[in-house]
């Protein structure tokens, strides 16, 4: 990968990576750091990373950095999304889903985001996160069930 291809990756994937990092970390400033660090690693390893696999590499680095960032904090209260990433089309459903995301752990949240935001398949998520396909499927289903149960609660019925 040369500088031209690297810059193309920046223009194409920086926004998606930032959205993913925002949901994972819950803080816009942390998300900025994750994105910056991820691209820094990509630049350092540009000779080893193929341009076609740059996106997966970026999300892999961002996932690990987000997890590390989460573990460094004693506790993260996923109370509200970053303001710049919050643009609800359906305010009620969006708010309920944001609260529902706060109910699941950071790893399950990252899996849901990789699945729903980026559309990765189970095996691709497994490659990014370092989990097995079965683990990805189990964790995802567990997260889906938590989200569903949150939505169908009496006070959250839509």
């Amino acid at each position: 990968m040369d500088a031209k291809e690297y810059n193309a990756c920046v223009r194409e994937w920086a926004d998606a990576l930032f959205r993913f990092a925002c949901k994972c970390t819950g803080q816009a400033s942390d998300a900025h750091d994750v994105v910056q660090s991820s691209f820094e690693v990509l630049w350092q390893k540009k000779g080893e990373v193929d341009a076609m696999k740059a996106k997966a590499f970026l999300f892999q680095v961002a996932y690990r950095k987000s997890i590390d960032n989460y573990r460094k904090s004693v506790k993260i209260n996923y109370v509200a999304p970053p303001e710049e990433s919050y643009a609800p089309h359906n305010p009620d459903l969006k708010k309920i889903l944001e609260r529902a995301l706060a109910q699941i752990d950071e790893q399950a949240r990252a899996l849901v985001l990789l699945k729903d935001y980026e559309g990765y398949r189970y095996e691709e998520i497994a490659e990014i996160t370092g989990l097995t396909d079965t683990q990805v499927k189990v964790y995802l289903h567990r997260a889906r069930k938590i989200l569903k149960e949150y939505l169908v609660r009496v006070e959250n019925i839509i």
Partner: peptide, 11 residues
């Protein structure tokens, strides 16, 4: 439960 990305959020 399927989330959709918010395209207005940019880096």
């Amino acid at each position: 439960t399927r989330l959709s990305p918010d395209e207005t959020v940019v880096y």
